[in-house]
C-alpha cells in the first residue's frame, strides 16, 4: 500500500514541476550558480593547499657564497656536515649555477656572455630536519656572520605567503559560499511557497478527504530535494566541462597558472558530499516552507 502512496506522491511531485516549470527553472539556475561558485572555491583551496604543502613539506635555505674562496667554502661545508639541524645539503659551484641557468633560460645566453665574468655565485642548498622556525632562524643568524657567506635566503616567507593566500581563499569561499547557500535556501523556500500556494485549493481538498500531512508535504519536499540534487549535479558537470575546455581558451596563460590549477581535480567523494548537501539544503528549505504554509492553512 505504501508503495502505491509513494507512486502517487511521485506523480504529484512531477505535476508540481510541470505546473510551475518557469519558477522551478529559475530556482534551478540559482542553485547551479551557487554550487558552481562553491566548486571554484573548493578547487582553488585544494590546489593552493597542495601547492603550499609541496613547498611547506621541506624547509630549506639557500646559502650564497662569496667568490673564489675555496678554502673557506670547504670549511663551511665541514661545519654544515656537523649541524644537527640539517638533513642534507647540495653544493652548486658558480660554473654549475651558470650551466643550470642557461639550461633553463637558453634565450638569455647572449646576455650572460655579454656580462663577461660569471655572475652566478656558488651556493649551498640546505634542507632542514623538522620545521622549528626558531632554530632555523638561529641557524641563519649564525651562518650569516660566516666570512664566506654572502647571503642566506629561506623559503619560509614564500610558505607564509602561500598559507596566507590559502586562508584568504578559504575565508572568501566560506563568505561567498554561505551567502550563496542562503540565497539558494531562500530561493527554494520561496519557490516551494509559490508551488504550495498554487496547490492551495488542492491542499484544502486533500485535508478534507483525509490525506495525511505526509501525503501533502512529501511532494513539495521532494520538489526541493530534486531541485537541490539536480542543481548540484548540473553544476558538477558544468564545472568539469569548464576544467576540460579552460586550457584551450587560456593557452599561454594556462601554462603560467598551471602550478596553481589543474594539478588536482576535485574528488568524486567531494562531489558526492556536495550533492548530498545540496539535497539536504533543498529538502530542509522546502520543509521549512511547507510546514509554515500548512500551519497557516490550519
Amino acid at each position: 500500500m505504501r508503495l502505491f502512496v509513494f507512486k502517487y506522491i511521485m506523480n504529484d511531485t512531477l505535476e508540481n514541476f510541470k505546473n510551475q516549470k518557469y519558477v522551478n527553472a529559475l530556482s534551478l539556475l540559482t542553485i547551479i550558480f551557487t554550487f558552481f561558485v562553491i566548486n571554484i572555491f573548493f578547487f582553488l583551496k585544494v590546489n593552493i593547499g597542495e601547492f603550499t604543502n609541496k613547498f611547506a613539506s621541506e624547509y630549506r635555505a639557500e646559502i650564497f657564497l662569496k667568490k673564489d674562496n675555496n678554502n673557506q667554502h670547504d670549511k663551511l661545508i665541514n661545519l654544515l656536515k656537523q649541524e644537527p639541524l640539517i638533513k642534507k645539503y647540495v653544493f652548486t659551484d658558480s660554473k654549475q649555477a651558470k650551466e643550470l641557468f642557461l639550461k633553463n633560460f637558453p634565450e638569455l645566453k647572449q646576455t650572460v656572455e655579454d656580462i663577461g665574468e660569471n655572475p652566478f655565485p656558488s651556493s649551498i642548498r640546505v634542507y632542514f630536519k623538522g620545521k622549528n622556525r626558531k632554530k632555523i632562524n638561529e641557524f641563519i643568524d649564525k651562518y650569516k656572520q660566516y666570512p664566506a657567506v654572502k647571503e642566506i635566503k629561506t623559503n619560509l616567507l614564500l610558505i607564509d605567503k602561500l598559507k596566507g593566500a590559502q586562508r584568504v581563499v578559504i575565508i572568501t569561499g566560506l563568505f561567498f559560499g554561505s551567502i550563496l547557500l542562503f540565497t539558494s535556501f531562500f530561493t527554494i523556500v520561496n519557490i516551494i511557497k509559490i508551488v504550495a500556494y498554487s496547490r492551495k485549493e488542492e491542499v484544502s481538498i486533500l485535508k478534507m478527504v483525509g490525506a495525511s500531512n505526509f501525503y501533502i508535504e512529501l511532494p513539495l519536499i521532494l520538489n526541493g530535494i530534486i531541485l537541490g540534487v539536480v542543481g548540484a549535479l548540473i553544476s558538477v558537470i558544468l564545472f568539469e566541462i569548464t576544467l576540460m575546455i579552460l586550457p584551450y581558451y587560456l593557452k599561454g596563460f594556462y601554462d603560467f597558472i598551471r602550478p596553481l590549477i589543474g594539478t588536482s581535480n576535485l574528488s568524486a567523494k567531494y562531489y558526492f558530499y556536495l550533492i548530498i548537501i545540496a539535497g539536504f539544503v533543498g529538502g530542509f528549505s522546502s520543509y521549512t516552507s511547507v510546514s509554515k504554509f500548512l500551519r497557516k492553512e490550519e
Binding site: R2, L3, F4, V5, E202, M208, V209, G210, S212
Partner: peptide
C-alpha cells in the same frame, strides 16, 4: 462543489482513494 477544475472527473474522485494508497 470545491472540485479541482483543471482535473478530470476521475482525478477528482480518485483523490479520496489515492491518499489511502489503494492500487490504481
Amino acid at each position: 462543489f470545491r472540485l479541482l477544475q483543471d482535473r478530470s472527473v476521475f482525478d477528482n474522485v480518485a483523490l479520496s482513494l489515492k491518499i489511502r494508497g489503494l492500487p490504481l
